[in-house]
Amino acid sequence: MNRTQVRRWWRLSQQSPWIATLQFLIFMALVMWVVLRGAAEMGYQWQWYNIPEYLWKEYKGELYPGQLTKGLMVTLEMTFWCTIFTLLVGLITALLRMSNSWSGSLLATIYLEVVRNTPLLVQLYLFYFVLSPIFGVDRFWTGVICLTFYEASFVAEIIRSGIVSVDRGQWEAGDAVGLSRRDAYRFIVLPQAVPLMLPPLTGQIINLIKHSAIVSVIAVADLTTEGRNIIADTFMSFEIWFTVAGIYLVITLTLSVFVTWLERRVRVRT
């Protein structure tokens, strides 16, 4: 086989779904083999049969959440509050940044620069070891507040760029007919900007779910923490981490599908 033939074969393989599937299966099999082989060499005992009890428990015919499910609930609860506060802080920051008041815009800029240019982990330690004791905030809310300020710095930019992308002529038309700034935002600019923001905002919520795992370092009982706790008890590190990752995946992928659907809807409407 000379070079042109190889190239032709390669191009064919790129087009055929069968060959693509085969390539995928071979690759996955290889990964599985490496993992299983590695585990076997370590003498790792797989105990997948022990996993279900950490997801749910049955007692007298009724189902109760297992440890991982409880952790998931904490993660979701955190995500819920963070989402609400993040949108609020993000909106305020975006408006401040775009406002004519230079102190407001300076404040917003400082906040954005500080939060985006320091590690999230360091921010969490700062909140947990410095601010929480001063203001007497518990672990859960410390996590919520810290994540909120972190994610809001991205959300602020999403909101700002959504607003900025509304044509300048729309502002001018609002001005020309004598609408106040507030009315122009409310009736003209935001109704046009929000559909543009929705897909990236949902993407940011997916990030929020992933980033929330970091609160395990301050021992909030979220999904990741529960995973760590179970491993500390049972040493089933392989199974538990696979399961935890799987749960995160299920949630974020569901949201991703939702985003894709949303993007298509928004595109149809404009």
Binding site: Q170, A176, V177, L179, D183, I188
Partner: peptide
């Protein structure tokens, strides 16, 4: 009246016309 019309694309013609009289 602008060169590019600058109508509000998300509102019907009627709402384009009633918005300012109602608010302002």
């Amino acid at each position: 009246v602008f060169q590019q019309f600058n109508l509000f694309p998300h509102l019907t013609v009627l709402r384009n016309l009633t918005l300012a009289p109602m608010r302002a």
